[in-house]
């Protein structure tokens, strides 16, 4: 099983698939930031999220890929689309999509990316190759043993966010 997985990863076809996935992911991200129409932006975000899910699959994290599709594409993206459609003047081409600091923002992003790339290149010892994928059982067991406290805190955060969102978004009572 493990050997078969390693063989799949090592084969040139999987290699080509990886670079294709990476290109799709980055192109989608560019679409998210540069598209004028916010609705199209959200659709490009779906492309990026699915690309990242594919990368998770490539890395042997099948469960995370499924979670990514279910939670991100299924829930968060639909929520964002609702937000897009609830607010008017989205698709108006006369409204500029970027603010007047766009050039400065591009400079900051480029410098940050360059610095991070430099850090990766100068890292002392990156591991040479992938190891056998983590079985799902290890992930699940960790969630209810070692990481049970962060897990519970996360559920509290979600409850707090839900209640807070309802309170914030509720129309005000006229008194």
């Amino acid at each position: 099983m493990t050997d078969a997985w390693l063989l799949t990863v090592l084969s040139p076809m999987a290699r080509a698939a990886f670079y294709l996935l990476a290109a799709v992911t980055l192109a989608g991200a560019l679409g998210v930031t540069l598209t004028r129409n916010l609705f199209h932006s959200a659709l490009w975000l779906a492309v990026t999220l699915l690309g990242v899910a594919g990368l998770y699959l490539y890395l042997g994290a099948e469960f995370l890929a499924v979670v990514q599709v279910l939670i991100y594409v299924g829930a968060i993206l639909v929520l964002l689309l609702f937000g897009v459609m609830l607010t008017a003047r989205i698709a108006d081409p006369a409204v500029p999509a970027l603010n007047r600091h766009a050039l400065l923002a591009a400079l900051v992003a480029l410098c940050t990316g360059w610095a991070l790339r430099l850090a990766v290149r100068q890292a002392a010892a990156l591991p040479a190759g992938p190891v056998a994928p983590v079985p799902l059982e290890t992930l699940g067991r960790g969630l209810v043993t070692t990481y049970v406290l962060p897990f519970e805190v996360l559920s509290l955060i979600l409850i707090g966010a839900l209640v807070g969102a309802v309170v914030i978004a509720r129309p005000e009572r006229r008194s």
């Binding site: 992911t25 980055l26 991200a29 930031t33 932006s41 975000l45 999220l49 409204v95 970027l98 923002a105």
Partner: peptide, 28 residues
Amino acid sequence: VSIGLFAIGLFGALSRRNAIGILMAIEL
């Protein structure tokens, strides 16, 4: 790839005018 996603998301979060666009960039 991860750095590229991060840089593009940072650019979007800094330069989008639309608040929902900024949220999308933060998701990136």
